[in-house]
Design a protein around this nucleic acid. Structure first.
Lengths: 184, 184
DNA sequence: GGCATATGAATGAAGG
DNA sequence: CCTTCATTCATATGCC
C-alpha cells in the first residue's frame, strides 16, 4: 500500500542506466549477496532485528542497502528454498523437508535477552529491569547443545565457524571493515 | 482454523492485482483498501468486534469480505507501520521518505460503482487515545501521484455519489463525529 | 522483442 | 502485540 509501486525512486535524472545505481528496488551487489548467502548457509535464517541492523550496516559499505532489504532477503531466501524443496521432493523420500529447524538460530536465546535487544517492540513490556547488560548470545549454529554458554562474550575468531570473520583480503580495496558477523 | 477457505474468487471488479484473482485468500478491492486506510489514518487502530463487524458489513458492498479480514488488516497494518518505523532507524543515509501514509492508490481503477451510498453507520468509539476524527479528506478521485493541492479537502456536500456518510445515528451514544468517507 | 526465470517487495493469515 | 509462513505482485535479467 504505501509505496505503491515501489517507486520511491524519484528518478532523479540520472538513473535508468543498466549498471549500478538503479533505482526502484534494491539491487544487491555481488559482495552483498555473497555475505548474505554465507550467513544463510551458516544457519542464519531469520535474523532478529538487531542482527538485521548490523548486517545492513556492514553491507552498506558495498552499496546502498536498507534494513528492510536484509529482512526481505532472508525471508525470500528461506521461503524459496523451502518451496523448492517442497516442489521437488514430495517423493516422500528420506528427505522430509526438515524445516522444523527453522528456528535453529533464534528461539531459545534472542528472546530472552533484554537490554538493547528489544525485538521490534518489546517496549510495551516494560516490566523487567533485570540485568541490563548481557551479551547477546551467539546463535547456536548447528547445535543447540550449548546451553551453558553463560559467558557468551565470544568474538569472531573464537567462534566455530558460524561466524564470519570477514576480512576480505582478496578483492578488497576498501577500508578495514572486518565484518565480524557475530552480531547478535 | 475452522474458517476453512472462504475462498471465493470474486469479481474482478477492482481487485488490485492485475493477474488472476486467485482465490483462497481475501483480495481486497481498491475501494476496500481505501476505506480501511482512511479509517486507519483517522486514528482507528484496534477496532472492537463491533466495529469490525460494521466495517466488514459496509465493505462487503465492494466485494467479498469477512470480519476476520478486517481484523487482520488492522493488525497487520499497525504492526507493519511500526516495523517500518523501527527499521527506518538505520540506513545511515538520510533516506528521506514519505513516512506518512502516502497511500498510493495502486491502480486507481476507479470503476464506476453503483453507488448506493449506504449509510456507513460506523461506531467510531471515541475512546481514549486519539480522537483525530473530524472529517476525512477526500481523495483525489482518479488521479494519483499528483500534487494534492493542499486545499482539495472536499466534504460531504461535494461528494459525488460514492461516498459514505458516516453518520452514526442509530447506535450512537457518543459524540457527534460524522465521518465522511469519500470513496474514490 | 517477447517470454521465462530469478528475485525484491508486499501483504494476508496464523501462531504464540 | 510480535513473529513467521505462504502467496502473490512487480521487476530485473537472461535466453531465444
Amino acid at each position: 500500500m504505501d509505496e505503491g509501486m515501489s517507486g520511491f525512486c524519484i528518478r532523479n535524472g540520472s538513473v535508468r542506466g543498466s549498471s549500478g545505481t538503479k533505482c526502484g528496488r534494491w539491487n544487491p551487489t555481488t559482495e552483498q549477496v555473497k555475505v548474505l548467502t554465507e550467513l544463510f548457509s551458516s544457519g542464519l535464517r531469520t535474523p532478529s532485528t538487531d542482527q538485521i541492523q548490523k548486517i545492513s550496516t556492514q553491507l552498506s559499505f558495498y552499496g546502498k542497502i536498507e534494513s528492510k532489504n536484509v529482512f526481505y532477503w532472508f525471508q525470500n531466501h528461506k521461503a524459496r528454498e523451502r518451496q523448492k524443496r517442497r516442489r521437488r521432493v514430495s517423493s516422500s523420500d528420506d528427505d522430509d523437508d526438515n524445516d522444523s529447524n527453522k528456528d535453529v538460530i533464534r528461539r531459545t536465546n534472542v528472546m530472552s535477552v533484554n537490554s538493547s535487544t528489544q525485538n521490534f517492540a518489546q517496549v510495551y513490556k516494560v516490566s523487567e529491569p533485570k540485568r541490563v547488560i548481557e551479551t547477546l548470545e551467539l546463535f547456536p549454529l548447528n547445535s543447540y547443545g550449548e546451553p551453558e554458554s553463560k559467558n557468551l562474550r565470544v568474538y569472531a575468531n573464537e567462534r566455530r565457524d558460524n561466524m564470519f570473520s570477514y576480512t576480505m583480503r582478496e578483492q578488497m580495496d576498501h577500508p578495514p571493515l572486518d565484518l565480524c558477523l557475530s552480531f547478535m
